[in-house]
Design a protein around this nucleic acid. Sequence first.
RNA 1: CGAGGUGUAGCGCAGUUUGGUAGCGCGUUUGGUUCGGGACCAAAAGGUCGCAGGUUCAAAUCCUGUCACCUCGACCA
Length: 482
Amino acid sequence: MGKKNDKQEFVAHITPRSEDFSQWYTDVILKTDLVDYAPVRGCMVIKPYGYALWERMQAELDKRFKATGHQNVAMPMLIPESLLLKEAEHVEGFAPEVAWVTQGGNEVLPERLAIRPTSETLFCTMYAKWVQSWRDLPMKYNQWCSVMRWEKTTRPFLRTSEFWWQEGHTIHATPEEAQEETLQMLEVYRDFAENVLALPVLTGRKTDKEKFAGARATYSMEAMMQDGKALQAGTTHNFGTNFSEAYGIQFLSKEGKLEYAHETSWGTSTRLIGAIVMTHGDERGLKLPPRVAPIQVVILPIAMHKEGVLERARALKAELEAAGLRVELDDRDTYSAGWKFNEWEMKGVPVRLELGPRDIENGVAMSMRRDTLEKKPLELDGIADTVKALLDDIHTTMFEQARAFRDAHIYTATTLEELEKGVQNGFVKAAWCGCRECEDKVKELYNASTRNMPFDQSGMPSDKCVVCGKPAEKLIYFAKAY
RNA sequence: CGAGGUGUAGCGCAGUUUGGUAGCGCGUUUGGUUCGGGACCAAAAGGUCGCAGGUUCAAAUCCUGUCACCUCGACCA
């Protein structure tokens, strides 16, 4: 009693989202134990709760990669400088952010080694060795690893010097097949983002200015954070024969002709964890999508010193686990029920089940869903199925809520003034002439960039470019981006 | 990397202007009472004041450098 201020203090440790979005984000990821800062410039330590989330994401993605015919491999972390230099555009793009190893033991190395910022150069070198004939194609490999980019400004998950990701690299006999692969993997990413992470994304093609260094075409999925800024959540690239020409990946075709292979690559990273936080989180903290939440259901025994409560709670846990759910039984007696409620809400567990003597007597458990905070008693009889359905509903509700937010923050602009206003709060959908100068101008004036050009180009708001007024070529999204 | 701000116990902060024995709340530990929305009582532990130099009889406080975080730019998944 008389501790009202203390009660508020715990929640107040998270800066209100409405007050300072950046600080809210930092508070949430630190206080929910997803991550900590490392004693290395710009690097993060992913803690058990955060890593469990990443493992769930990996499992879901990996399953989809395998289902589309890809195999995992492991490449070295170091790239000899001479190898990195072979594709000019690629080097130019990555050179400013490469970290170098110059010494081994006590000896200075004759050739310095780059710590991989991405592994196109290694994959291409190996593909050149492995591919001889059209019968060897396609080769569709992926690796899970970390890469290092010496970034100027870093933020946990969104941009760190070292980050964990997957990079798929494939080579194909024909341009059609490479293009099909590029679009297929973008679709795999979209499906994963929307149906697993509950993140609505806009897919489309990047402009030449924004495409990957060395790519002929880059496609992306773009998500909107709750401050209206865009987060590039995944990219796929079609390199054509750019890299195979530089690295000599040639094969004998069916017709006996020596041809260059067509290459693609695609990647998603731990940045997606940041996207989950910034898309779904609220004033209480995290809100984790049920399909990747490390803990889907937390059981809180109430008055657990009373006879039979803990036993019944354990049986409930076993029953739910047997049904394939990820369950935590919080039987810590050091904290009050109310304290635990708040902690698990902050950590974003989708469903809480309270089980006390009264519930047991009535044959129910009191449920609370994190997305809407709605409480409802659930019959213990057949509860596993009920909870599964509830988790599915939470997923759908979270996705719909995020999509409604996004759609409400997409503005159509036909003038620069409208564009300026729009990118303060969200994305701007506009007609664009296709020239680099107009992109640069928007960047310079409003610090916003082009995100991508949707595949469905219908519904152009104007036949004139929003920037220069010349005839419009493309429907495109502009936004400030992370 | 440029401009501005912050850094004192695990967390949140006071103390810095005007140099003079390191403080508060929460948390933690131990014992007890509690337990359906952030419990209570009692006792205890915990800090080379981000780090490195310097000035001084004396530095959390003044000076220089450096690191990290936040905001705004330039660069990027």
